[in-house]
Simulated scan of single mutants.
Amino acid sequence: MTTGAVGTSTGAITRPRRRVPLWDNARFACIVLVVLGHATQRLTYDSDFALALYLLVYAFHMPAFAIISGYFSKSDSPNRRQMARVLTDIVVPYVIFEGLWTLTKWIVEGQANPNPTQPSWTLWFLLALAIFRLVLPYLALLRWPLVWTVGISILVGYWPNIDSTLSLSRTLGLLPFFTLGWWLRHHSILEKLDLLRRQRWWVRIAALGTFAVAGFVAWFFVDVWRAVNLREWLFYDAGYAALGGTEWWAGGVRLGLIVIALALSVAFLALVPRGQHRWTHLGQYTMYVYLLHSFVLYPFRETGILRDAEPTWLWLPAVIVLSVLIALALATAPVRRILRPLIEPRPAWLFDDPTLAGREGHRNDPTGSRRPRESPRPFPPG
């Protein structure tokens, strides 16, 4: 995010916009948690500590990502270039990576079922971002949009015909968090409370206490959470009946999870550093990590190397360190240069006006990160 004045036609000199490091730091921390959640999944079968960590991460990391994405989303009617960006930044990469996953499964597993309506592994979030952007202008017209989206999130769990097709169930389940992010920016809540640059010591202590309590509850009652299949509830992508919640009050469980996710997301953002660090700029390239890390983890997932691994106490710290290293590596400049045509394609042939596919000096990540101007580099057409 950047802040500052915008130049006017009067010729007055304005100060250049300054980037707020908080958001890049938060994006990178979120993407590390995404990698960590996927990396620890195989350990959860044999380790209570791994399952507790997994539940803690999944309780808030994608809601937090949705809040950040919503914060940088606009509710105005999109112009032609913004509409083109939905295609070039979201739809086309989705098609490319669905094709890559189909090919990978066919080579490794000997079978594949090409079906773009059922997103592979992590690709659901691309569809969610597209749907979020499409519905936001309509939500912004409503009074109490947050109330409406919470109601939608709870109600969809009762309707079995809303499922993982086009990631609709998970998208609608997480819609309140995206809307909350937009609402915070729309009403300048964080600026009014001076939360973008200041970290009050008592807020940090409260945030650490929140995570300590949540972590303890996740570990101490881990057998209960395993019995009720809590991990599936945290995905937001299945109806209550499919999760065993056949009672009429099952929607109250979803509401409780929304409240917990909100509390942990607030605590998470309270702990994110406000200053500039050597790794801060990597938060501008989270989509590279998001789309690529699953290919890195796929061999571990399929070979079962993390199942029944002893000693478990050594594997879990190793997986945590490995997750951070994977996120760091996949966001580096060499990876971006090599794989940019896949993750940031510019298919001029797709548009009636080929200039809509141009790669502008300033551009947004699909999660809303506005990047600084880069030095010109040749970019392959099409």
Rank of each mutant, 00 (worst) to 15 (best):
S9N: 13
I13N: 10
D48C: 01
A50L: 02
A52L: 11
V57L: 11
M62K: 04
P63K: 01
P63T: 00
F65R: 02
I67E: 00
I67P: 00
F72S: 10
S73C: 09
D76H: 09
S77E: 09
M83H: 14
L87F: 14
P93A: 06
T102A: 01
K105C: 02
T117S: 12
T117H: 02
L123H: 10
R133M: 06
P137H: 09
P137W: 06
Y138R: 07
L139Q: 07
L142F: 03
L146Q: 11
V156E: 00
L168A: 11
T171H: 01
L175Y: 06
F177T: 01
G181N: 02
G181I: 00
H186Q: 04
S188G: 04
S188V: 08
E191D: 13
R200E: 14
W201V: 08
W202V: 13
A207Q: 06
A207W: 00
A212Q: 12
F216I: 14
W219S: 02
V222G: 02
W225R: 01
L230T: 05
D237M: 08
Y240N: 02
E247I: 05
V253P: 00
S265E: 06
L269T: 00
P273K: 12
Q276W: 13
Y285P: 01
L291Y: 08
L316W: 08
P317H: 11
A318Q: 12
S323L: 13
S323M: 11
I326M: 13
A327I: 12
A329W: 13
A331F: 03
T332G: 04
A333W: 09
R336F: 03
R337D: 13
L339Q: 07
P341I: 07
D352I: 14
P354E: 06
T355G: 11
L356H: 09
G358D: 15
R363N: 11
R363W: 15
N364C: 14
D365Q: 08
T367M: 09
R371K: 13
R373F: 15
P376Y: 10
P380M: 14
